[in-house]
C-alpha cells in the first residue's frame, strides 16, 4: 500500500518575489518518473513541506497546460512559510498532491468568463486564467478584475502587464483608495466598486471570484444584480488543513470537507453551508 503522507521531492528552480511578503516558488520534480505520473487540474491544491518544519497548504498557482514547473505563491505568516522563505534555489521541498476539486474549465467553454481576484487570491485564479489563455479559442469574452490594497501588494505584476497588453482580453487592475503611488495608472477603488463600474454581463457567463472574505461578501450582491446565476459564480474556500486527504478532521464546514469537496464551490453551494469558515 502506498504511503499517502509521503511527498514528492521537488527542487526550487526559481524564486520570484511578488511583494515584500509574498513569494512565488517555481518547482520541478526531482524524479522524471514522478513528473510523468503527476497531473492536476486548475484550482487543486497541495501540501508543500520544508523538512524539519512541517507542511503547509497552498493552491497550485500554475496551469495544467504548463507542466514544466509547478508554481506556488505564499505569504510569509507562519512557521512553514517562514521556513520556505529561507530556502534558496536548488533546495528541496516536499510536495503532496494534487488534492481537492477544481474549477469547471470544461463547462466554461463557449462562455464569457469574468475573473475577479483580490490580493493573494489571484494565485488560484491565475492557474485557471493561464489555463484558459493557453486555450483561448475555446472561450468567449474574458475579463480580469484584480485589486490589492496597495500597488506594492499586487502579485504577478509581469503577467498583469502582459494581460493588459493583450487585446483579446480585458484586464482591469485596481488598488484600494490610498494605496496608489504617484505614477499609478490603473484604477483606484475597492474591487466591488470597480466590478460595478465595469458591469460585466451575467448572460452566458461564468465568474470566478477569489480574495479576502470581505471582498467576496460585497462582490456577490453585485454579481447577482449583473444577472450572474448562483451556479455560475465560483469561488474557493480555505480552512486550516493538515492531511488534505479527508482524514485529519479540521477543515470541515458542516458535513463537507474543504479538502475533498472543495476548495472550489459555487455560490449556490456556499449558501447551503453553515457559517464555519
Amino acid at each position: 500500500m502506498e504511503n499517502i503522507y509521503k511527498p514528492y521531492l521537488m527542487e526550487i528552480k526559481e524564486i520570484i518575489d511578488e511583494t515584500p511578503d509574498t513569494r512565488t516558488l517555481r518547482l520541478q520534480f526531482k524524479s522524471e518518473e514522478d513528473k510523468k505520473r503527476f497531473s492536476f487540474k486548475a484550482g487543486q491544491f497541495a501540501e508543500y513541506s520544508v523538512f524539519g518544519e512541517g507542511e503547509c497548504t497552498f493552491c497550485i498557482a500554475s496551469p495544467p497546460t504548463r507542466m514544466d514547473f509547478i508554481e506556488c505563491s505564499f505569504k510569509q505568516v507562519g512557521k512553514v512559510t517562514n521556513a520556505l522563505r529561507r530556502l534558496n534555489v536548488g533546495d528541496t521541498v516536499g510536495f503532496r498532491g494534487p488534492y481537492g476539486n477544481w474549477f469547471p474549465v470544461e463547462e466554461m467553454r463557449g462562455k464569457n468568463i469574468v475573473f475577479i481576484a483580490g490580493g493573494i487570491g489571484l494565485a488560484p485564479v491565475r492557474s485557471v486564467i493561464l489555463n484558459v489563455l493557453d486555450r483561448r479559442k475555446e472561450f468567449r469574452d474574458i475579463t480580469i478584475i484584480y485589486g490589492a490594497r496597495t500597488v506594492s501588494d499586487l502579485v504577478y505584476k509581469r503577467e498583469l502587464e502582459e494581460w493588459q497588453s493583450r487585446n483579446d482580453i480585458r484586464t482591469v487592475v485596481t488598488v484600494d483608495p490610498g494605496g496608489e503611488t504617484p505614477d499609478w495608472k490603473g484604477e483606484i477603488g475597492f474591487v466591488p466598486t470597480i466590478v460595478e463600474r465595469i458591469s460585466p454581463k451575467g448572460e452566458n457567463a461564468v465568474s470566478i471570484i477569489c480574495g479576502p472574505p470581505i471582498m467576496i461578501k460585497f462582490t456577490l450582491p453585485i454579481m447577482m444584480k449583473l444577472g450572474f446565476k448562483e451556479d455560475n459564480i465560483i469561488t474557493t474556500l480555505e480552512n486550516r488543513m493538515k492531511c488534505g486527504l479527508g482524514k485529519c478532521g479540521r477543515c470541515n464546514i458542516g458535513n463537507i470537507y474543504v479538502c475533498k469537496d472543495g476548495p472550489v464551490f459555487s455560490y449556490s453551494q456556499l449558501k447551503g453551508l453553515p457559517q464555519e469558515y
Binding site: 513541506s49 523538512f51 512541517g54 478532521g249
Partner: peptide, 25 residues
C-alpha cells in the same frame, strides 16, 4: 475520535521524521 496533526521532528539538522499525532477538535 480520529483527528490528527502532522508535524516534523528533527533529531539533528541532518535527519528527522514526520509524525502523525492525535489532535482534537
Amino acid at each position: 475520535c480520529h483527528c490528527f496533526d502532522i508535524v516534523d521532528e528533527d533529531y539533528l539538522y541532518s535527519e528527522g521524521r514526520r509524525m502523525k499525532n492525535w489532535d482534537g477538535c
